[in-house]
Nucleic acid binder design. Structure first.
Lengths: 244, 244
DNA sequence: CGATGATTTGATAAGCATCAATAACCGTGG
DNA sequence: CCACGGTTATTGATGCTTATCAAATCATCG
């Protein structure tokens, strides 16, 4: 496709996956991102439920988690954001209905909402790419909902691993070796529990089970999917919803 | 607000809630909907996972459910759609990642995607209303996810009832009498189970519990919330995420 | 009024949470 | 280099929530 241009930031790389973008589009993305960026240390909450950010918030580097906090302290992670993901699009002065917390050192760029909309309206390629990215983001949340509602603990975790591997693969963050694929995985077991609606203890047990079956290896903050095919099969992972 | 114009269809009524619309906007909505509509009988699946509808699909009358079906037969309802809700916006030729099934006799209108986008780009009021409606729809799904991940069976069902009551209230489909509010409720206990990730048997038990506490009455396909305040409190329902 | 689907109830088992305690790991400073 | 405190991971024991299976009752409607 547009590999010739080698877009320099994660947003460009991501959008180019959803629709063919020409050189003008990629330069427009560059201009959008040519504003002061925020560096965020790991575990810092940098967007807060109730905030009304005026700009589009894009994650350029690192991982982040969306979190909903209940008044009694229960926590639900509703999604993991990866480089190139849009964290929030303001509409009028709507309040955020979730918080966002960095999982690694992260870089955020606040993009002027008017400029964002204008670029979408001037290039049909950009409009399509942005719309598709939104649809995929919605599909990911819907799948997560299916996980929580219908799947066993084993399936929830395995499905999550497969999904993350797939998403990371499309932005070149997965290393292949033999049958196995591996990637940096900055998520603790407690956070996995908050994401999957399980207790940390049970997450640990299921991970041990996966390990003992030779499906995964998780060490040094690196996750190895040793038999991705088998894992995808056992967890009913079908990547159709991730593809435009 | 714009009560003076009395928009005649559900889409107009809904959008007017999210941003002030002028007479031109409301007439534009009317024109959009002035195309052949589809009548759908209850329990008919009228959009199918994998389809690539070319038009924006809007529910004008009746209730519908979004459903994700797993290969082994497990079913998860990921949302209930009410009159005025957008069921799907096409982006390129993206595939639906869920099915939609009518719960009551329903009326669907397929709106030309180009005309939809154009109207949004010509009126800032419409653009805002549409964007806000999308944000709210996303927030509803996120809340549902929190329900499945963190809440007890009692909370899941009660929260769902409060949410539906709130949404129905904004389109005038709730009857108030004394402290209680009631509305037509075309959802079976099996479907409630598929929506909340519980078994039908357990849904039944929890409903009985709510009834015995005098919180609800559910009969003749009508749901009465007898003490909505109490129910909202016990189920940690906070309508902030539903409001623009 | 029989037939079909929806709701209700009981009994049992599985899955997962909870509590408690220990072990490994990691960055920090002595 | 080692000691140290905090975070993260691991394991065992126990019990609650909820699923599952089976069957009876209740509605609804042609």
């Amino acid at each position: 496709m547009s590999a010739a241009f080698m877009p320099c930031n994660a947003l460009g790389r991501r959008l180019a996956r959803y629709a063919p973008l020409d050189e003008t589009d990629l330069r427009a993305i560059e201009r959008l991102c040519a504003v002061p960026r925020h560096r965020v240390p790991p575990r810092r909450e940098f967007l807060r439920e109730g905030d009304r950010p005026g700009a589009v918030q894009v994650l350029l580097e690192g991982w982040a988690q969306r979190l909903v906090l209940l008044p009694d302290g229960r926590r639900q992670i509703t999604g993991f954001a990866l480089p190139g993901d849009v964290l929030w699009r303001p509409s009028g002065a709507m309040r955020l209905d979730f918080s966002v917390i960095a999982l690694t050192p992260a870089m955020i760029v606040p993009i002027n909402a008017g400029a964002w909309d204008q670029i979408a309206s001037e290039s049909s390629g950009m409009a399509l790419a942005l719309a598709r990215q939104e649809r995929v983001a919605e599909a990911i949340e819907r799948r997560w909902l299916v996980n929580l509602g219908q799947r066993t603990a084993f399936e929830r975790l395995g499905h999550l691993f497969c999904e993350l591997c797939h998403r990371l693969d499309t932005i070149g963050m997965v290393t292949r070796s033999d049958q196995s694929q591996s990637f940096a995985f900055p998520v603790t077991q407690v956070e996995l529990a908050e994401a999957t609606g399980l207790s940390p203890v049970h997450v640990n047990r299921v991970l041990r089970e996966m390990r003992s079956e030779g499906l995964i290896r998780l060490e040094q903050r690196t996750l190895h999917l040793l038999k991705r095919q088998a894992l995808a099969q056992r967890t009913l992972f079908d990547p159709a919803y991730l593809e435009p």
